[in-house]
Design a protein around this nucleic acid. Structure first.
Lengths: 231, 231
DNA sequence: TTAATATTGTCGCAAATTGAGACAATAAGT
DNA sequence: ACTTATTGTCTCAATTTGCGACAATATTAA
């Protein structure tokens, strides 16, 4: 990793959404010996598309290819330029400052959100961090720099896109019940939805394929299983 | 202008929308002696917010402060890296390549759209261009690099935002008629709207202030004038 | 002075969409 | 066989939307 290989001044950060325990969660990294928490991010190689750089980083962090990904904002304020923070991280990792001085420069960060199936992910820290873990949105640690703003804007954008893009099913396994899908929508919107109305609305879109019944093992009528009808 | 003063690899491009003659138009620059057409763009100073850099550039290009501005996408593909084009532009302007070699590097461009009142603008070319002029969206010249894609995505985003943000009135003078506002919406959406329904919908939002009648001078009932009720 | 014309503000009504409750069906557990 | 929890679907009212109609009015023509 050096200034020959990566574009200066440009980074990306990713808000990786997963759904588990009826809650929306995101991946957070914790840096070695610093107590600093941050979004998974990275840099762009000279000969690499910005989008590909993000996919490459997400593959390392989650083990997944073909992730649902949306770019939502480039954060470019001067206020986010805090070289002492990067210095702290590098020193805590025994990195030579001279060789990596480009990392102490100002960065504009292009932010993406990803939607993945929680069960498929193997969260994997990078060389500078000792953990990469799920945190519920309402139980986030203090994030460094403006990463809390990035999360807030990611969630807002996800809400805005909820109807226009068919976003909900990317957070579930291939097969899921209508109730599970409704819980996803409720978690994203932060409000309860009426069961009958939700079911009617989703089915009217004609994008779900209904499968044979699931045997839930519970003491009540078993729900249908659905899959997302890819176009 | 040198690499000391500006961030490397980062540019912005702006799609400046105006409304005139019942059509949506945007500002296009034409570079000296090259036949190249491009969106107004620029670079970010080391100690300058990205958003401020765009406002600074737009001020130069239009003479306006306090422009309605939305960032919508960062274009970062490798395919848009065409150093020979920038070289052509610089040579046509007698610029020394060595001094400005940072301009021949790869750039990621953060794209914004602006909505302005056509009448208020004095389009002003920069040092490298001999014109900065309005072009209707359906009569654009061939734009360099991926600027046609940028325009297409700007229009798409504008459409998507049309209801959520109260976008229409930023393209009109302070006082305007309901018919004028409807024409703006129709130009953005690319379709005719029903008059009665449109008026009912807009008025129900409660964001317009009705003024005394306009005396249109035409042979029919004079319409009300409205202004946008600032919050 | 009066009639004709074009456009405006508003209304009415049917169609479509949404919100909320109700009911039968059903997979266990008792 | 009865109970319980939950599901799929339906119905009905409330709301929103699409579309045409009507009176009002500023100007021009007769």
């Amino acid at each position: 990793m050096n200034s020959k290989g990566y574009l200066k001044h440009i980074a990306y950060d990713s808000v990786v959404f997963g759904f588990s325990g009826e809650k929306l969660k995101i991946l957070i990294m914790k840096y070695h010996n610093t107590g600093l928490f941050a979004l998974p991010g990275g840099f762009v190689k000279f000969d690499e598309d910005l989008n590909d750089a993000v996919r490459r980083g997400l593959k390392e962090r989650t083990g997944l290819d073909n992730i649902y990904l949306e770019q939502f904002y480039a954060f470019g304020s001067v206020a986010r330029y805090k070289p002492e923070i990067m210095e702290t991280i590098m020193k805590a990792n025994g990195q030579a400052l001279e060789e990596h001085s480009w990392l102490l420069d100002r960065f504009i960060s292009v932010a993406y959100y990803a939607l993945i199936n929680y069960e498929d992910v193997v969260p994997t820290p990078d060389a500078l961090s000792d953990s990469c873990d799920w945190y519920a949105l309402d139980e986030l640690p203090n994030l460094m720099l403006d990463h809390a703003d990035i999360v807030a804007k990611a969630l807002q954008t996800l809400r805005d896109n909820l109807e226009r893009k068919l976003v909900g099913m990317n957070l579930l396994p291939t097969l899921f019940t209508m109730k599970e899908l409704q819980k996803v929508y409720e978690a994203i919107l932060g409000e309860k939805l009426h069961r009958g109305t939700f079911q009617r609305k989703i089915l009217s879109l004609g994008i779900l394929k209904r499968h044979e019944k699931q045997f839930s093992g519970a003491a009540h009528k078993a729900p249908f299983l659905y899959s997302f009808e890819q176009k």
